[in-house]
Design a protein around this nucleic acid. Sequence first.
DNA 1: ATTGGCACTCGAGATAACAGAGTGCTAACA
DNA 2: TGTTAGCACTCTGTTATCTCGAGTGCCAAT
Lengths: 341, 341
Amino acid sequence: MQTDNRKMKVLATIIETYISTGEPVGSKSVANMLDNEVSSATIRNDMAGLFEMGLLEQPHTSAGRMPSHLGYRMYVDDLMTLHNLSQEDESTLDAMFNVRNPDPDKLLEDAAIALSKLTGCATVSSTITPRSVKVKKVEIISAGMTTVVMILMASNGVIKNKVCRVDFVVTNQILEFFKTFCNSILVGQSIQDISANFLNSVAISLGEYSRVFTPLLENINELCSEIAGGQYYAAGQNNLLAYDELSPMAYELLNLLSNKKDMQSVIDTCPHDTALTIGKENSRMELATASVFITKYNIGDHTTGALGIIGPMRIDYAKIIPYLDYFQAKLSKLLSDVYED
Amino acid sequence: MQTDNRKMKVLATIIETYISTGEPVGSKSVANMLDNEVSSATIRNDMAGLFEMGLLEQPHTSAGRMPSHLGYRMYVDDLMTLHNLSQEDESTLDAMFNVRNPDPDKLLEDAAIALSKLTGCATVSSTITPRSVKVKKVEIISAGMTTVVMILMASNGVIKNKVCRVDFVVTNQILEFFKTFCNSILVGQSIQDISANFLNSVAISLGEYSRVFTPLLENINELCSEIAGGQYYAAGQNNLLAYDELSPMAYELLNLLSNKKDMQSVIDTCPHDTALTIGKENSRMELATASVFITKYNIGDHTTGALGIIGPMRIDYAKIIPYLDYFQAKLSKLLSDVYED
DNA sequence: ATTGGCACTCGAGATAACAGAGTGCTAACA
DNA sequence: TGTTAGCACTCTGTTATCTCGAGTGCCAAT
């Protein structure tokens, strides 16, 4: 029907205006924006209706109206039309990835940074290491008389190193022996399964040498748990300080963002592969005035990580969402390539 | 003389009270704190004197007094007595370093994090790579059909790796050849000298193979410039949001902290090896209401990096400074050990 | 040099008045 | 039945005025 159609148009106008100005919107200006096809009084009636439906809020009686989180929700689900990325946009985005460097951790870091610059929001990226990720190779190389570098490569393409000081003089022979030993024991094992306990039992089979190699085994344990724990990266936190509506919660918000564990739980509680939660839809009170976009990406059938944007509720949804979608697709593709190897 | 002596005592009392309460201090409360040995009127006279000397400020006529940056300066230079670290304090601090892991970048990161937690301030750490740092070793290992990991070790103990995709099928033979080639060319070269230009000229000597190895040489260049550029790390930025007096500048301040280049210039403009600049003494306006502690640490004769604390002017100088000194000494020692190898 | 006393200043908080923006409602209209 | 003009009403933000209290500055006495 004509009427409800207009109501939605009014809602969309209010939201878009509010997004760009940050001020409550009055009936008169809405009427103007709709080319005065109807009078401001009519708009007022519509706004009263939208208010009763819970889609609009008013800061006080005589102010204009602003969207409630339900209003945003309806806008996002039904009303807005996404700005599709132009060919140029896509090539600009493509240029942000270094295709030669297929280190997943690095890719995610780059993606988070790029996305935060593009959107003016804070972004997070994180990886979950599925059980299926295995040790691919262990390398040990000398880095001085009593110092060695241990390098662990996982089947998902993640590579980490650690420097370790040992109590004996490093010779090629010893390294070669220990490297062969490690590879025979570890290659093919799930990263998740390599714990201090496991390595203790392994150490026993080294017999009299076990004491000497203990620090190295500890290092392997640390490398594995670093990989197993996944990576978390946040970028552009400072951007959030520029939004007045977030500043009462700025401290709590930035603390949340820098807390890997808490953010991981925010990501985990997302019901779908890509989710947008608006304002009070968020379970955490730090995020009650924010919007959170989360998208998970897959390698094969496994969800292996997530990319997220945290911004104010008043944000250009139509512009942001295509960015995130594009990054998600791109990352899935790049990371699958790495994994195929 | 008796009088000036008391004036200084008054100044110290005002500063210490202001540091702990954040409120301007009145003559009456100062008199109380000095056990009413003199009356508040006397204190008022002293305060008027201190005010004329520029050591105190008043927010408005009928408020108490608070220290000016000159006041803090005098307090720090002449008046305060440092809280020396207890034996326990020192062992708590020692436990924060992993002595087995002598990777300088990692040590600095850990130091910055620990220091920010201890002080409730933001901290930065940075390294400068002196010309004397040379390539110690290059390792190249296979990580898949067309993927290799390049590892570069520098003589200062820094080790970095990069994953690289190549256009040929990786065999042991090729890797061995290229590794030998790289080591023969690069080992002993100053990290600073390895530029794209240098590697281009090297590539020529590879003749027909040069095209194949180009991506790898590019990677070496990137690794070298990453090491040559030094490392910059900031921690505890969020802590600053808790201080009201910094919040008008919070956005600018956090942006400054996350900008490696700008912070490096702040560090570079420090005249001494350890410097404390208070409020307006800072050249950058973002820091006009902050205090900045910077200490540089040395390996042998070379300054190789810096550790800094950024906090409000109203900060417990007597407690913070010993922490920073201890970290500086500790880092110098640990890093010298690495370098000796 | 120190002190008690006192006038003075300034900000914080309370109160009132007023202008302006925007709504809600009603009665008239198409 | 949907739309409109008109108007009373409500609420905020601003400005002005007043008072209270904290704290100073200064002076005369010790």
